[in-house]
Simulated assay, not measured.
Amino acid sequence: MTRLGAASAAVMALGTLGVTTGLALTDVSLERPATVSTPAAPLAVAPPVVPVLADAGSAPSTTATRPTTTRPTTARSTTTRTATRTTSTSTSAHPMPCSIDGDGACVSLSAKRAWLVQGGEVVASAPITSGRPGERTPTGTFHVTWKDADHRSSEFDDAPMPWSVFFHGGIAFHTGSLSRQSAGCIHLSDAVAKRFFRTLSVGDTVVVTR
């Protein structure tokens, strides 16, 4: 009974060990390996947008600047007009045949023209009529003797002789016809006779050439 009991106990112990070992082995073989979780890649996060603030004293540049177009500057030519005074010796169209220094007048009977001179320079030139045959205007160098703005001829029935400038007896510059010859005086248009009267003074030289 004792031996059987010991043997039974040994068998039971082995059985228990085998069962236990088998169970343990079975559990180990059947056990799934633990799942190792792989850490996920970090998400790309956009950097925060930081607004750029303009300085307090300047406005933000929001508009495109257009390039400045420079137009070529065209210089305008400026013409300076210079008043040219005609010398006492000649004019471009009608050369004066006299030589007068200072103030005076020159007459060319053949050219039918008179020149007014101031300071040795011609200031006016105009057509004339002179004495008819038998009453020719005398030639030579004379001087202004007297003047009368509203003269009337005592020789020719009180005929008007406006702006008369006398230089040789009764011979004078005065307003008269430019289409008819005179009795010896120098006829001028009214405007020119008035200018001769206002410009010439007693004593000024008058030269009459043929």
Results as ranks from 00 to 15, higher is better:
I100L: 13
S77E: 07
G104K: 03
M1F: 08
T63S: 11
G5R: 06
R132Q: 14
V45R: 15
A193S: 06
P162K: 12
A193T: 01
E135S: 10
G140A: 09
E155H: 04
D101G: 05
G5P: 00
S125D: 12
G18H: 11
M161T: 02
T16R: 09
P67C: 04
L53H: 06
V52M: 11
D204G: 05
V208G: 14
A13N: 04
F166N: 04
A114Q: 06
D27H: 13
W163N: 14
D190H: 02
T16P: 01
I128R: 08
D101T: 09
T2D: 14
S153C: 04
T87Y: 06
T91Q: 12
T2A: 13
A44D: 12
A13P: 00
G170E: 10
R180N: 07
P60V: 08
P72R: 15
D101M: 00
P138I: 02
G22F: 15
W115F: 10
V11A: 12
P160T: 09
A44G: 05
A93W: 02
P162C: 07
V11K: 03
T209W: 08
S99Q: 11
H187Y: 09
V123A: 02
S164L: 06
T145Q: 14
S29M: 10
V49R: 12
P39W: 14
D55W: 02
D157K: 10
T80G: 02
T79R: 13
V28W: 15
I186A: 09
T79G: 04
L23P: 00
V107G: 02
L200V: 01
S77I: 02
D55Q: 11
A46D: 06
P127E: 08
P47K: 15
W163S: 12
F142L: 04
R136I: 01
S108A: 03
V202L: 07
T205Y: 06
L17W: 12
S182G: 06
L200R: 05
T2K: 13
R195W: 05
S90M: 03
L188C: 03
V107K: 06
G140I: 01
P48H: 09
V19H: 10
A40S: 13
S201G: 11
F167M: 08
T89L: 07
H187T: 00
P47G: 09
R198P: 00
W163D: 13
A6L: 11
Q181R: 13
F166V: 02
S88K: 07
A111T: 01
T16D: 10
P42K: 14
D150K: 08
R132W: 02
T129F: 01
T20K: 07
S88N: 10
A13V: 09
T74H: 07
R66L: 14
A126L: 08
A191D: 11
A114P: 00
T139D: 06
A34S: 07
P97S: 09
A24V: 12
T38D: 15
D158I: 01
T65C: 03
T82P: 00
G104E: 03
L25M: 15
T63C: 03
E135L: 04
P48D: 13
V36L: 15
A105S: 08
D150L: 02
G120L: 03
S58A: 13
T89D: 15
P33W: 02
A6H: 05
P127I: 04
S77V: 04
Q118S: 08
R136M: 02
S61A: 14
A93H: 05
